[in-house]
Amino acid sequence: MFKSFDDIEREIDETFEELMSSRPMWDSSTGRLEPLTQVKESLDKIVVTMDLPLVRKEDIHLTIEEKNLNLEAPLVRCVRYERWGTHSDCKFSSFYTIVNLPTRVNPDKAKAKFLNGVLSVELPKTVKGKKINVE
């Protein structure tokens, strides 16, 4: 039996999600760490939060594209892992991530705040739900 395009798309999404959640949250070749991120969707907006320890507010570089939120933020000092695994010395100097948003948002109305090392970005949805009159 042939699978529908919806089934195939769902399988690809699930596989991608599995790969994303099981891959390492670091890249020693670029010295980048991936921050812990949570995406919450409500009726009219998407709220993305990220844990960014060792980061200063003025160093956060946040951009938004169609359905992606991009973050790059240098650490105030390098984080070193000595004698870790097969690495004799491993250094990381920034956080970097691209967050896939579940729907299109209005970038002009995006708001961000950074408090106690946690970044919170509020992104109003472009298409809000159409009101249905209840008879």
Partner: peptide
């Protein structure tokens, strides 16, 4: 040491969330 702990326990947190 709070900020260093937060950096170094990210992956355990991720696994715990899972």
């Amino acid at each position: 040491d709070a900020e260093d702990i937060r950096v170094k326990t990210r992956e355990l947190m991720q696994r715990t969330n899972k």
